[in-house]
């Protein structure tokens, strides 16, 4: 199972360029579903026939990740870039990335500490002043390997560490994709649509058209969400806590969860003795926002795996939280006739 997670976080998939992760997901879900389609936006939809007619259930995790796009190649062979999705520019200096489908290695350079004025060290760097070095001496040399419009993602391997913790890039939302794929092994009485969306990080784009297409009655979104239970943050700003189980959202900035679904998720968790937590913030948004407002309205709710240091190359997740999320989603599927 963690092999699956490892495969998923190894695949590149910046928003708008999800090809590699899309192919992987298609391979992974083909044996678990009756039909796999890719829609016009590039969303992957795995259809699993149910035994009870009537309702359509949509499970949704986004397969895209935050990243970069090359905007210009300078005379000296350095690359200028734009960020895809929200990334704090202060984390960029001295990080590695992989560019384009070939995965050309590059680094975000910054002038050495010896060369900085004392005041400079106190100032946050801006993305505009940074550049990517791929070791090319001239524009011509760089152009042989990359071109403007090439996408890039953080280069960071998955590492097991500490007590049941895992560090990786792209846990938001490959962890959700992995949990969704695992959950597919459970039976769902209704027709099930396992949806892996594109372009969530640039404005919840893929989910909008996927929901329009599928016309679900209810949708459960599986997310990797912020977890700020770290030093310097007061408990009221934790949002979620690591190791306390999947986080169920009452609401966030994009949607208000359906109350029946929330009550049902809590009931199923308690019955199956799955630890869970209620997400303690109203921040952020996710695919639920567009799905809930699709056509005449859809029942939605969100289950999230707490991830520390989200949108960075070193996100951290607890494997127990991950496993419990899978269990909760499976419990949800098994009994969703009650909804």
């Amino acid at each position: 199972m963690s092999d699956l997670l490892k495969r998923l976080v190894s695949a590149k998939g910046a928003s708008g360029n999800e090809d590699e992760v899309r192919q992987l997901i298609i391979e992974e879900i083909t044996p678990l579903t009756h039909q796999v389609t890719v829609d016009r936006m590039g969303n992957v939809i795995g259809y699993k026939r149910g035994s009870v007619p009537g309702k359509k259930v949509m499970l949704c995790a986004h397969m895209d990740e935050v990243g970069f796009i090359i905007t210009r190649i300078e005379e000296n062979g350095m690359l200028k870039f734009g960020t895809i999705g929200s990334i704090d520019a202060r984390i960029l200096p001295s990080k590695r990335i992989r560019i384009g489908n070939e995965g050309i290695p590059g680094v975000f350079g910054i002038k050495a500490i010896h060369l900085q004025e004392p005041a400079e060290r106190e100032t946050a760097v801006k993305a505009k002043q940074l550049y990517i070095d791929i070791g090319a001496k001239t524009r011509e040399e760089a152009e042989r390997k990359v071109k403007p419009g090439d996408y890039a993602v953080f280069d960071s391997e998955m590492v097991y560490f500490g007590e049941g913790k895992v560090k990786s890039r792209a846990l938001d939302d490959r962890a959700g994709c992995a949990a969704l794929i695992e959950a597919l092994k459970a039976d769902c009485p209704f027709d099930l649509y396992a949806c892996f969306t594109v372009q969530e990080e640039v404005g919840i784009r893929g989910a909008k058209v996927a929901a329009y297409n599928i016309k679900p009655d209810m949708a459960l979104i599986i997310e990797g969400t912020t977890c700020s239970d770290v030093p310097g943050i007061e408990p009221q700003n934790f949002s979620t806590r690591m190791g306390m189980g999947p986080a169920i959202s009452i609401a966030d900035l994009s949607s208000y969860s359906n109350k029946k679904m929330v009550a049902y998720l809590i009931e199923r968790a308690e019955k199956a003795s799955i630890p869970y937590q209620i997400k303690e913030s109203l921040t952020g948004g996710n695919d639920a926002g567009e799905i809930q407002r699709s056509r005449g309205g859809v029942m939605t709710s969100v289950v999230s795996i707490p991830c520390r240091y989200i949108h960075s190359p070193s996100s951290v997740m607890d494997l127990e939280d991950f496993n419990n999320t899978i269990r909760l989603v499976q419990e949800f599927l098994k009994g969703c006739e009650a909804l």
Partner: peptide, 17 residues
Amino acid sequence: LMVTHIDDKGFLRFAAL
């Protein structure tokens, strides 16, 4: 005002709805 946290002393933190 949505309650997002209850502290040890029973004060409620909230977010704007």
